[in-house]
């Protein structure tokens, strides 16, 4: 039995259909039409204790909806979720004392007062014992470098400081599972690094199971050994990041600076061709078409000013996955 078992969950939203214009607005006032949108369709996966899983996909793919169902906020339209033998929705109160949730785009800190006051309130919400609370708080504050920050009103903090305070707030009750919904959104490089190092550390030392959604592929690269890719509400890939890289790792990006116009080339192993400023950008599969052969081929026909060969980074890999699955 896995720690987290998600079995064929779906979530359908009922959305009012409305066209623009006053007439349409009036019409919909009297006779509202609804459309049904499947935000998540028949999603299944399991997560073991102590794993870090990156949950990725484009905007509107269903990431947040899945996380909300896992947190017990939303009731799935169909399917089952079992976490540590509990049903998140029906066992809500018992279940949520074991999870921590960070919504990157939404604050849980009271705006006009210092973060420390919110922490104190959380101590009472979660019924944390005073000694344990002080100990956990100290530890988190040191790890996230927040010593002076927590005494200032939240409204005067920088985004990076606030996000780190959010993380402290979500971990004061020592949860076994942590859900991070875009934890590094809008942060500068330094804050990102602190947050990432911290996530790795609590995973390693406290064996916290972590599921994070992000659009930042460096997050995934640094944190998650396993990724689940979701698009249009369905799971498209579930596996290790290294497998994914290997599969697409033979792909090379070749940037060519030339004044000539390169016509369509038909050669096996060429994945894509794109016109860029001052030249072209190609992606080739080096297992099928070697770089030297490709360049040779071009240099006989065109005059090349400069050339640059690069490995594809994870961003491009994911973009390509999106393309492959047409999402």
């Amino acid at each position: 039995m896995s720690y987290i078992t998600v079995d064929g969950i779906s979530k359908t939203f009922k959305v009012a259909k409305r066209n623009s214009g006053l007439r349409a607005a009036l019409k919909s006032f009297f006779n509202k039409e609804y459309t049904y949108i499947d935000a998540v369709k028949n999603v299944s996966f399991t997560i073991e204790k102590g794993e870090i899983v990156g949950y990725i996909g484009p905007n509107g793919a269903g990431k947040s909806t899945t996380i909300k169902m896992l947190c017990g906020i939303l009731l799935p339209t169909a399917g089952n979720i079992k976490v540590n033998n509990m049903n998140p929705f029906t066992d809500r109160k018992k279940y949520v004392s074991n999870i921590g949730v960070v919504f990157g785009q939404r604050s849980q800190l009271a705006w006009d007062i210092p973060a420390e006051d919110t922490f104190d309130l959380l101590r009472d919400i979660y019924n944390i014992e005073e000694n344990e609370y002080q100990k956990t708080k100290e530890e988190l504050i040191n790890l996230l470098d927040l010593k002076d920050v927590i005494k200032k009103p939240v409204r005067s903090l920088s985004l990076g400081q606030r996000m780190r305070c959010e993380i402290v707030a979500s971990l004061l009750h020592n949860p076994k599972i942590l859900f991070l919904d875009e934890p590094t959104i809008g942060l500068d490089a330094k804050s990102k690094k602190i947050v990432r190092d911290f996530i790795l550390k609590i995973n390693k030392e406290k064996k916290v199971t972590i599921m994070l959604t992000t659009h930042d592929m460096t997050d995934i690269d640094k944190l998650a050994k396993r990724i689940i890719l979701i698009g249009k509400g369905q799971i498209l890939y579930d596996g290790s990041l290294s497998d994914l890289k290997q599969k697409y790792g033979s792909y090379k990006k070749i940037t060519l600076i030339t004044k000539d116009t390169i016509k369509d080339i038909k050669v096996k192993g060429l994945i894509s061709k794109k016109k860029i400023d001052g030249g072209y950008s190609f992606i080739i599969d080096s297992n099928v078409l070697t770089i030297s052969k490709f360049i040779n081929n071009l240099s006989t026909k065109y005059s090349i000013i400069d050339i640059d060969v690069d490995n594809e980074n994870i961003d491009d890999v994911v973009l390509k996955l999106y393309q492959d699955y047409e999402i």
């Binding site: 947190c71 017990g72 906020i73 109160k93 949520v96 004392s97 939404r106 919400i125 979660y126």
Partner: peptide, 8 residues
């Protein structure tokens, strides 16, 4: 959403 993830 925030309230729903707290044990109260």
């Amino acid at each position: 959403d925030r309230f729903l993830v707290r044990p109260r």
